[in-house]
Amino acid sequence: MSTTSIDVFDESSHWELSPQVSLRDEAFGALAYHHGNRRLVFLKSRDLVELVRRLGDFDNVSAALDELVSSEQRARYVAALASLHRSGLLSA
């Protein structure tokens, strides 16, 4: 399933939403469901949803954050991505 979850999440690498994950928009953000490990995760803001959707378009996470997230918010979003990574929702 998710071999990626044993890798370390780091901002200088490329990560994207795992092809095993479906996103469904909701008023509070979105629901993410991993069809392999059956995890259901709540993405609690629209901005996070946007970041997660577009993550794969960038060479690495830093570049995505530079473009999509203000510097004050950066730490929060890194933490959010790291937790999605721990749940196996991101792949390299």
Partner: peptide, 18 residues
């Protein structure tokens, strides 16, 4: 969003059931 407000959000219903 703190957990409690997410729960409030759920109590108002979602776009589709979980």
């Amino acid at each position: 969003m703190p957990e409690s407000s997410l729960r409030d959000r759920f109590e108002r219903g979602l776009a589709a059931p979980i």
